[in-house]
């Protein structure tokens, strides 16, 4: 906790390519992203934006046809240069991942207590008894009712919400410094989702664990994140503190995304969709990847890709014409022409 200057995780010029029969898919391109200790960062994007692949790459979980480039430093060590064995020692112990479908993370033929205690035996060298005691304590901490009974059961005997709690308990067992949760509540009902998000909030604030929350759901982001990173076509297009992102989005894609979601707390007759389709990653559009769907696009946007530039302290956007006085971007539905600088 003492070292606050170097980020816990720092990706720089990080890229992922997949070779496919149809050509090379540029899934992630030139990514610069950092996660501080104890920070909760939401990574938002639609399918194909590269948000999941980015972190699959960090954890060494990419498919065989993938190639990574650049750096992914965790506490200063470049994870991309580690041997599989060295990476194994970091994964599970210092950083852990939680997936959308808890069943993929759990072994269906193993009792809960064995799945949980195995992690501790492998990473911490604990004896069975001690490992099982810690596993039980963790199940209670994540709010599993009747933990003594549940720990003797198999995954299929638990509900979806409970399984996700087990997976979170498993991720937390070795007290990691970083948890990456990829759509952890997408498969769950809203009431269960709210419970799991409360749990994440409590755990990160109590234990000082950093959390990367990968999601397509801006509603989830609003309640949990400190910082938000918006990805589009394998690139970061905007990064901002959560409050600023929602009240003053700088990049038209972010603004459009916020406007396109219906709200449970408001009456509305229509939402404003984003026209067109997500980009083709084999033949990405020239210039700004969002320009074919952007209603503010000008010649410059079609010619040259805007770099991810700092627009105010702590905020970056990849746009030639960011909404600088961006209050109008969501408040009135449409940014005024004056908001377009240039």
């Amino acid at each position: 906790m003492s070292d606050t200057t170097t980020p816990l995780l720092a990706l720089s010029d990080y890229a992922i390519r997949f070779s496919t029969p149809d050509g090379t898919v540029k899934a992630v391109n030139g990514l610069d992203l950092s996660v501080g200790r104890g920070e909760t960062v939401a990574v938002v994007g639609e399918s194909g934006s590269g948000k999941s692949q980015t972190f699959n790459g960090v954890f060494g979980l990419l498919a065989g046809n993938a190639e990574t480039a650049g750096e992914a430093r965790f506490e200063g060590r470049d994870l991309l240069k580690l041997s599989p064995r060295e990476l194994d020692a970091v994964r599970g112990a210092d950083m852990a991942m939680v997936f959308q479908d808890p069943m993929t993370a759990l072994n269906p033929a193993m009792k809960i207590k064995h799945q949980l205690s195995e992690t501790l035996k492998v990473h911490k060298g604990l004896k069975r008894r001690e490992a099982e005691a810690q596993a039980l304590a963790m199940l209670k901490k994540v709010g599993i009712p009747e933990a003594e009974r549940r720990i003797e059961q198999y995954p299929h005997q638990l509900s979806g919400g409970m399984r996700q709690r087990v997976v979170i308990a498993m991720a937390l067992l070795c007290r990691p410094k970083l948890i990456v949760a990829d759509e952890p509540t997408t498969a769950l009902d809203v009431t269960i989702q709210a419970q799991i998000l409360d749990l994440f909030r409590d755990l990160t604030s109590d234990a000082g664990t950093a959390l990367v929350l990968i999601t397509h759901d801006l509603g989830v982001v609003a309640g949990v994140a400190d910082k938000v990173v918006v990805m589009y076509a394998g690139r970061i297009v905007e990064e901002a503190p959560v409050e600023a992102l929602f009240t003053r989005p700088a990049m038209p894609y972010t603004a459009a995304l916020i406007r396109s979601i219906p709200r449970v707390d408001r009456d509305a007759e229509a939402v404003e969709p984003i026209g067109g389709r997500p980009p083709d990653l084999i033949h990405p559009p020239a210039g700004c990847p969002f320009h074919p769907r952007c209603r503010f696009a000008e010649d410059a946007c079609r010619r040259e890709r805007p770099p991810l530039a700092e627009i105010e302290p702590g905020r970056r956007a990849a746009c030639w014409f960011p909404f600088v006085d961006a209050t109008s971007a969501t408040a009135h539905g449409t940014p005024s022409p004056e908001a377009l600088d240039g």
Binding site: V190, T191, Q193, A194, Q195, D198, D217, L218, G219, V220, V221, A222, G223, V242, E243, F246, I258, I261, R263, V264, D265
Partner: peptide, 19 residues
């Protein structure tokens, strides 16, 4: 159900009652 539904507004999302 209404209290649990996410709201894309950080101020509201953080000030409402927990589920």
């Amino acid at each position: 159900l209404l209290a649990a539904a996410p709201i894309p507004d950080p101020k509201i999302a953080r000030s409402r009652e927990k589920t």
